[in-house]
């Protein structure tokens, strides 16, 4: 029983046709939640719980954390619903809460491991392409589902959280650049620069698995 997914923003050659509907159906639900209508809130949860779980899982890479984050995100949203003024989409507002919760969990885990927080600084490594080998056609089909999942998980886990988050929201969840900026409280240029580096770093790392095998040893 899958909920309909939000459509991904098309790439790479689509033109943005922005036609906002009169009133987003979410806003009606939010208005009802503000009057204490729990059924309306349940509807909003059903609509977005899967996406919130997926985002949290991608950022934290930890399933239990992601389950907790889903709970905390929606409960916080309910508690703070009066603060939502409709300046952004409800979903974007929700994502912001989920991202904050996710990063908080990551910090907690890191504190336990006493790793330094300077990760953001040493991030340019891998942003400059070095591997120019072309990839096999449909390279992902050379691995079974479990192998592929492991490769993708390991690879994205190697990104600094600040880059990973941008990539998850923009490229996996399909938020627009502007929505991603709103959800992360970043400027649009900052989102673009992080996104570029995230994409290039992932590409570089995946290349090890997906490149056309050559005569020379890697």
């Amino acid at each position: 029983m899958r909920q309909p997914e939000r459509p991904h923003s098309p790439m790479p050659t689509a033109v943005n046709t922005e036609e906002e509907p009169q009133v987003h159906p979410d806003l009606e639900l939010v208005a009802r939640v503000k009057t204490g209508d729990l059924a309306a809130f349940e509807k909003l949860m059903r609509q977005y719980e899967r996406q919130i779980f997926r985002i949290s899982l991608q950022i934290t890479q930890n399933r239990e954390d992601a389950e907790d984050i889903v709970q905390d995100t929606f409960f916080k949203a309910f508690q703070k619903i009066d603060q939502f003024q409709g300046n952004s989409k409800f979903y974007t507002w929700l994502v912001r809460i989920a991202v904050n919760e996710s990063l908080m969990r990551l910090r907690k885990r890191k504190a336990q491991k006493t790793v330094s927080m300077d990760e953001e600084i040493q991030t340019d490594e891998g942003s400059i392409p070095r591997d120019f080998a072309d990839w096999m056609p449909n390279p992902e089909q050379n691995y079974n589902q479990a192998e592929l999942a492991e490769i993708l998980r390991r690879t994205i886990q190697g990104l600094p959280p600040g880059f990973r988050t941008v990539f998850v929201l923009r490229d996996i969840d399909g938020l627009s650049t502007e929505e991603t900026a709103q959800a992360l409280k970043l400027s649009v240029p900052a989102v673009k620069s992080r996104l570029l580096r995230a994409r290039l770093q992932l590409r570089e790392r995946l290349s090890r698995y997906f490149r056309v095998p050559s005569g020379e040893l890697a």
Binding site: W135, P139, L202, R203, L206
Partner: peptide, 11 residues
């Protein structure tokens, strides 16, 4: 091309 594939595979 490979960056585009990276995005598609993750998506």
């Amino acid at each position: 091309n490979t960056t585009r594939q990276t995005i598609e595979i993750y998506r």
